[in-house]
């Protein structure tokens, strides 16, 4: 039992990261768009697990609510409304697939070189500030004091997005 607990506390994050990458690849390479949505749902849940492991419980809950509960449902609705095209199965990818893959691999390798060259120091074993009084209370205290102006701007952004979505999708004037 002890060995199991220490194994998971040491390697759980790596397991989560590996499975997340697999499901993310599933989002991009699925033939069927419904499979892509399911893979995206799995990815979001696994990322919420990663947040949990990083002492961000509130962010993990928000991730589950906003992504798995809201955005995925929007995607599924859209997928059902937009009837999949007949020639979808013919050609899945664009013309420049190989060039794109090469460019992305180049980007990843260059960034990896930069990251390995930067001394970040060891990760702290215990944290105090971000879990003070529980993750939710700590986040709320910072959000509503130091970051109150961005918070209000974010609410305006959401209002604009709501109005924009309604205007974009409503029937144009029948007059």
């Amino acid at each position: 039992m002890e060995a199991l607990v220490s194994f998971f506390s040491n390697y759980m994050l790596y397991i989560l990261m590996g499975v997340t990458i697999l499901t993310a690849v599933g989002v991009v390479y699925s033939k069927n768009a419904v499979h892509s949505v399911v893979a995206l749902l799995l990815t979001m849940i696994l990322v919420a697990g990663i947040y949990l492991m990083l002492d961000a419980e509130f962010i993990a809950a928000v991730q589950l609510l906003v992504y798995a509960g809201g955005i995925i449902v929007l995607f599924v609705f859209m997928l059902l409304l937009v009837a999949l095209h007949k020639d979808e199965a013919l050609r899945l990818f664009n013309t420049y697939t190989l060039i794109s893959l090469g460019l992305v691999a180049f980007l990843v390798i260059m960034l990896a070189v930069v990251f390995f060259g930067t001394p970040f120091g060891p990760a702290p074993a215990t944290v105090t500030n971000i879990v003070k009084g529980g993750s939710t209370e700590a986040v709320a205290g910072t959000l509503y004091s130091a970051y109150i102006l961005p918070f209000e701007i974010a609410s305006i952004l959401l209002l604009v997005a709501m109005v924009g979505a309604i205007v974009l999708t409503k029937e144009r004037g029948k007059s």
Partner: peptide, 19 residues
């Protein structure tokens, strides 16, 4: 970064706007 790269790949190579 790998996750970001997978996202960039999806935007670059897929033809479906939803994906």
């Amino acid at each position: 970064m790998i996750l970001f790269g997978i996202g960039v790949t999806g935007v670059l190579i897929r033809r479906n706007a939803l994906i």
